[in-house]
Amino acid sequence: MHMNSAPHLLTEDRAEYERILDDALRNAHDRPDLAAVGQRLNTEQLRTMALNATALITTAAAAEYEHYTKIREEMRAPKAAASVRNSVLAPVTGEAAAESGAGFAAVIAVLAPVLAGTAALIFLLVGYILKALSPTASFAQTLVSAGWFFGALTAAAILVAAVALLLTALRNGATQVPAEEVTGELPDEVARAKDAWRHALLERGLLPFLRAALADPSADPKSSKPPRPVSRIPKVGYSGPDYSSPSEGSTAGQRPTFTSPDFTSPDFGGPEHQPE
Rank of each mutant, 00 (worst) to 15 (best):
S244P: 03
H2P: 08
I122Q: 12
E73C: 02
S239G: 08
T48N: 07
M3T: 11
R26S: 00
M49F: 00
V160E: 08
G151Q: 15
M3F: 11
A146F: 11
H67N: 04
A174Q: 07
S138Y: 14
V236A: 14
T11C: 05
G184R: 09
V163E: 02
V177I: 15
E276L: 06
S244A: 06
A62M: 06
A50G: 00
A98S: 14
P208E: 07
A193E: 02
L121K: 09
L46M: 10
P221E: 03
L111D: 15
R76E: 15
L56A: 09
A137V: 06
A156L: 14
T11R: 03
A53Q: 05
S247K: 11
H199M: 02
T168Q: 12
L170M: 02
V236N: 13
L166W: 13
L46V: 12
F268K: 09
Y17T: 09
L25N: 07
S247N: 08
D22K: 08
L21P: 08
A219M: 03
T183K: 15
E74L: 01
D216K: 10
I129H: 09
E74N: 04
A77C: 05
N86L: 13
A146W: 10
A196S: 05
A97T: 12
A119N: 15
P221S: 07
A105C: 01
R31D: 08
P7V: 05
P221V: 03
I233W: 01
A61S: 05
E16W: 04
A24V: 08
A6W: 03
A196V: 05
E180T: 14
A137N: 11
F139N: 13
R228Q: 01
V114T: 10
A80G: 03
S239F: 12
N27G: 08
V37G: 01
S245M: 07
A80I: 05
E66D: 03
S250C: 12
P91A: 10
A179D: 14
E74V: 04
T54Q: 10
F150H: 07
A162D: 14
P221G: 08
A109K: 02
A161W: 13
A50I: 01
R72M: 12
A157Q: 08
R47D: 09
L121N: 14
F258E: 10
Q45S: 06
V190H: 05
F150K: 02
Q176S: 12
T183G: 11
A109D: 07
L214I: 02
F139G: 13
T58G: 01
L165V: 01
A60E: 02
P266D: 04
V230H: 01
L167H: 11
V107Y: 09
T48R: 10
L89I: 05
D33I: 09
P187F: 01
A193K: 10
R85E: 11
A212S: 15
P229S: 03
D30R: 00
Q176T: 10
A112D: 02
N172H: 06
L10I: 07
L210S: 06
K222N: 00
G117F: 04
A98K: 15
L125N: 13
A53D: 03
A169M: 09
T58N: 00
E66A: 02
V88L: 08
V236C: 12
T43G: 02
A77H: 10
K131R: 15
